[in-house]
Design a protein around this nucleic acid. Structure first.
Lengths: 332, 332
DNA sequence: CTGAAAGCGCTTACAG
DNA sequence: CTGAAAGCGCTTACAG
């Protein structure tokens, strides 16, 4: 690989001048520039980005920590982050934890090793002092969710409001026994559960603990829910389920076909996210749309602004919205 | 940020000794090591990976060029590549072209700039001399597909065989008018089309050009196909469609509900890939399973072996298989 | 407009 | 077992 020195020799100038040409420094004569460009082309020269970084240039690489890229929610989030990052000249490293949360520490150390300029963490599990320090230096931004109970700046939708509105919608359709699925374990800090409880309370409905489902995240969890449902006495069955995402909803709907359970007549299913799958099942999924793209874009712009000490992007409203399709039945 | 020199000073040894400790060099006394570790901890020292790279260490970053991460096929491929790479200590940079193939050049230049050790290209469009040179140096591996007609080493399934077998299966179920969807434009080098034609010829069936559908890639393209189908006279309609992936198949099936067209009675749909969506539609999709995970793993191991001058991994058989579900009707 | 030289933070051949 | 010094390929303050 040709180095800047090779170029300098071939063009019969100093490395300083070559470097200046590379960096569009004003004080290089056109004649010299031409010579240098010719030499570069001849040698197929590309500046060694590593050497540039050692001289203080940013790596222009940011990371995103996610659980699974195969989860469409994250695929869409990563898409939006990658696209936004590229616009500012950054490349994106995908860091999957696959549920192993000890990898979070390993990944964030990449900042200290200078491999990465910054990181976007989605669904932070625990805020270690290291991560908090990194947040303070502006090299880490949290997006989507933070499970712990400390106050931390997180870019997210209003989970409580979304879930409150969704639950109220179900209640207004005449549902009184509503199952609730969460991706976490039971946790009073869970914002979606808070919104759910608030709506219930408002309508003086009791919450039945047997209708609470923990760690319900993907298609298979949805299928399992339906299998549980099928086993219940018809009187004890919930009439609706607040599923924790369209993947879960799709699993419920698909499995229902096998048990001759009619969706939505026997069970109304409310999704979350509004992923493409929501229009591919039969019936299609009524769901709470989440502005994934805007969220990813805003998180990325915030991180890059912090990295470059620029003014932060204007606040955006991460509004959610109920998309009415076919999986919720009106009992009234 | 503390540097190796800071550590050396604090531990009262030379930087050489610190470096040796860092790299598990044998000739450092335990006593010295202890002092050094203590100093490192106190200073929260992390070796600057950039400086290490400038001294010849690999960046341990590889890239993968894909069109869209939101396409589940690529999400699964990237998942498998990332997981395999991490096992060898490599991190993965996701490089989306989003259809803009001029980005391929920009991305491969990251190798020359030393930002990336190597790259896996999926669906290479055109093999420029630069890319061919990179393949020769072992820094680029092509995975999945190469559209051009030069002979290039590509890690892929036997597309022709898969498509031949799938088509024969449809014919054996009594189908004679079979529509064919491809992601590309009409191209006699298209392996799937070759396999399709071969099966047709074998059974002395004519291919109807009107049943050939170009650039059919995603859910929306599937919906469009169904809309076209619904408009045809029943006699002119194909009885089956070789869709170019489960996304397309899912779009067809979903749209069929809206047009009162029964799948598979009115139209048999054969998918490709065997993605999770294949069990979520109603009816579920009969499809040709593709070993995406094995393919990603093998491509990654091959690239890393080449980068590290190790023996290449043993050849694996990337076998495809028809998964029988509900979307193909037996006419006999 | 141009160049010599220091230095970014490491590793390693050489010397002890 | 330990250390002084060169050098990886750049950029930049300084001098001209």
């Amino acid at each position: 690989m040709a180095s800047i020195e090779d170029v300098a020799k071939k063009a019969r100038v100093s490395v300083t001048t070559v470097s200046r040409t590379l960096n569009d420094h004003p004080y290089v004569s056109d004649k010299t520039k031409k010579k240098i460009y010719a030499a570069m082309a001849e040698l197929d020269y590309y500046p060694n980005n590593i050497a540039q970084q050692l001289r203080g240039k940013a790596s222009k690489m940011i990371g995103v920590i996610i659980s699974y890229i195969t989860n469409p929610f994250f695929a869409y989030l990563v898409d939006s982050i990658e696209t936004t990052a590229l616009e500012s000249g950054y490349h994106l490293v995908v860091l999957q934890t696959q549920g192993k949360h000890d990898l979070e520490k390993f990944y964030t150390e990449m900042i200290k090793k200078k491999q990465l300029d910054g990181i976007i963490i989605t669904n932070l599990e625990t805020a270690t002092p290291e991560i908090k320090a990194l947040i303070d230096t502006g090299k880490v931004v949290i997006c989507n969710r933070y499970i712990g109970n400390e106050r931390l700046p997180v870019i997210h939708i209003d989970e409580e409001e979304a879930s409150y509105t969704g639950t109220k919608y179900l209640i207004n359709q005449g549902h009184k026994q509503i199952a609730f699925c969460t991706g976490n374990v039971m946790n009073t800090h869970d914002r979606r559960f808070k919104g759910f409880s608030k709506a219930l309370k408002e309508f003086k409905l009791d919450f039945d603990e047997n209708l609470f489902f923990e760690k319900t995240l993907d298609v298979e969890d949805g299928r399992n829910f339906l299998r549980w449902f099928a086993k219940q006495d018809s009187i004890k069955r919930p009439t609706a389920v607040f599923s924790n995402g369209d993947q879960v909803a799709a699993g419920i709907i698909s499995e229902a076909h096998k048990y001759q359970i009619n969706i939505p007549e026997d069970l109304s299913v409310l999704g979350f996210d509004d992923q493409p799958i929501a229009t591919l099942t039969s019936p299609e999924i009524t769901t709470i749309r989440q502005p994934i793209q805007t969220m990813g874009e805003y998180a990325t712009k915030t991180l890059i602004a912090k990295l470059e000490n620029c003014p932060l992007p204007a606040n955006v409203d991460l509004k959610t919205e109920i998309i009415h399709r076919e999986s919720v039945h009106n009992l009234l």
